[in-house]
Amino acid sequence: MSDIVHDDLTESADDHDSHGHHESTGVDNRKLGMWFFLSSEFLFFGTLITNYLLFKGRDFGPGSIYPVEFYDIPFTSISSFVLLMSSLTMVLAHAALVRGDQNQTRTWLAATGMLGLVFVSGQFFEFTEFVNEGLKLTTNPAASAFFLLTGFHGIHVVVGVVLLLSLWGKSVRQPGGLSPEQGLSVELVGLYWHFVDIIWIVIFVVVYLIQ
């Protein structure tokens, strides 16, 4: 914490103020709030990943089955790649908006949302497969932890898709496209989206690839 303080001790809080009352740190309230929220999200996912790691190696007695026996690595690799690329389209959408290119913004926002949907559908398919093959939430704690972790991540993706599509809807509906201020919303949704992506980067390796 003292590091955060340091910035502020050396520069006066009112350096950037010309008039009225604005952000003492020079970072928009919403953006600052978003970064703190994302920082806190590490603890959410940290707990879930830890659960999985704790249970994945335990012995649940004879005849028990483990999520690792069900993984379809080629399939998950593709959906991981899809999510990774959606981060690219997201950042392109934001870059286009900064340039003032409303058309491209619209396209890339839609593309990001679509890629997100593809990822979620893939996860839905994966879950269905697992359940059909006999791995259920109720099977054992390792299975419970797997479903809760990936499910919780999946819900994050769904929320992101909803946000993206509603932004896209606005950019289509509004005559001049997104306003510069809505650029901040795009930026915030982008931060959230990239965060969901980096969490998957970790999950992909820690849960799926490390044996």
Partner: peptide
């Protein structure tokens, strides 16, 4: 606390 401080209200 980070953003709504009045003029001159440094953290310390």
């Amino acid at each position: 606390i980070f953003n709504m401080r009045t003029k001159g209200m440094r953290l310390l």
